[in-house]
Amino acid sequence: MPEKIKVATASLAGCFGCHMSLLDIDERILDLVQVVDFDRTPITDIKKVGPCDVGIIEGGVANAENVEVLREFRHHCKILVAMGACATNGGIPAMRNQFTLEECLRESYVEGMGIENPMVPNDAEIPLLLNKVRPLHEVVKVDYFLPGCPPSADAIWTFLTELIQGKPIAFPYTQIHYD
């Protein structure tokens, strides 16, 4: 039996919708695990990514921790994939780029409704936010993009199967969408 392909996934500034869509491949996941081993993913609960063939990232880059995780993935994964709208162009979280970080934080922690003890949190445990939310390709080299909010299970399936078979990835028209 040939060695299995090692895959890791993570969600940065996303909503886990892409991971839900990944699970939506339903029973096909049984075919997938025949050829794939999962390293760090929200499904396995492995915390640190190790050497992998493929890293799949959901979500954009919104804070210092996102940068760190993304760089670890880039370091350990031969192929890095941006999965979903947020990873590809920042998506919904990047709508905060229409405001300064100060406006965002004041609204959330100082002036918003129902806030007690208003202050911008400054605990060293909390990752600092970037001035703007960025897509992955502005921080590291990305090898493949899988658009959609989320990408459909079929699109994810097309991508994974063709990638594993070493084919050029060709999505049918209905599988490319941005919403």
């Binding site: 210092a64 970080l101 060293a124 990752p127 600092l128 502005e138």
Partner: peptide, 28 residues
């Protein structure tokens, strides 16, 4: 190989100013 499109550490400048933090985790 590849370098980011922007200054990563500089992109934390506003957050540092707003929180007053300058610890090791406040930098990239």
């Amino acid at each position: 190989d590849f370098e980011p499109a922007f200054d990563l550490d500089g992109a934390l400048s506003e957050a540092r100013a707003l929180t007053g933090r300058d610890d090791v985790h406040a930098h990239i």
